[in-house]
Design a protein around this nucleic acid. Structure first.
Lengths: 117, 117
DNA sequence: CTCACTGTTAGCCATCGGGTTAACAATACC
DNA sequence: GGTATTGTTAACCCGATGGCTAACAGTGAG
């Protein structure tokens, strides 16, 4: 079962363009902070805080290597899995709802054809 | 291309348990505000603000019918589609990254077997 | 040792999120 | 008309977000 607080943090982590950008770049592999966040046009402290939010959400992993911090996506991110699963279920129910509407429309058309052959 | 602000609002809309709960209930069909939010244990103004956030994100549609407001999911929610698409792409790249790691490991194992037959 | 580089922490400020109570608007009902 | 019901708006509180500059810590390189 998806933990609510985990979902909260994961969705919140994805709700800022800079944080999404960081995750997108890290999908290619491990990067230093500078490589992952070089040209977002904000100060380094701002970047540092975004990284902290991502890290606390479990969306990234940090390994300190000398003076550089190496960032990467975790092997498995339960938060992202849960968030993706929630969206999938939500869309499934939504599709089902549309199916019901479709059925109603089909039925109505059939009835109309019956009345006016 | 997914609009960044739309993604921001959609992910933010999904980042609160009450708002997710509302969306889950509305997946079953149209409900009044009271029906959709009856027992979340917060005051009515709090609910009203959650609804406004969902509405501004395009995640719900409101039709005023007398003194009750009827809520439903929109026929198509581009925001949710975009957010789902973003997560899908992100996971795809992540899977590909893991595939690469898997390839490397397989290759290493093959090399190891060659050295020690 | 000194200097440059990478990144974080500290302190400040403005805005937003989420909650409350109190008051209001609009509709339904008697 | 008077009253209950549904839901929003207004005003406020407090903590979190998001940004900045300045200062610091640690490491690499001359």
């Amino acid at each position: 079962m998806a933990n609510s607080e985990t979902l909260d943090r994961t969705f919140a982590a994805c709700s800022h363009p800079i944080r999404r950008g960081i995750l997108e770049r890290l999908a290619a592999g491990t990067l230093s902070v500078g490589q992952a966040t070089g040209d977002f046009g904000v100060s380094k402290p701002a970047i540092s805080r975004h990284l902290r939010i991502l890290e606390e959400a479990g969306a990234i992993v940090r390994v300190v290597d000398g003076r550089t911090h190496l960032l990467s996506l975790p092997d498995r991110d339960p938060g992202l899995d849960d968030a993706y699963g929630w969206m999938t279920r939500q869309r499934a129910m939504w599709e089902r709802k549309l199916d019901v509407i479709e059925d109603v429309l089909t039925e109505q058309r059939a009835a109309a054809r019956k009345e006016q052959p």
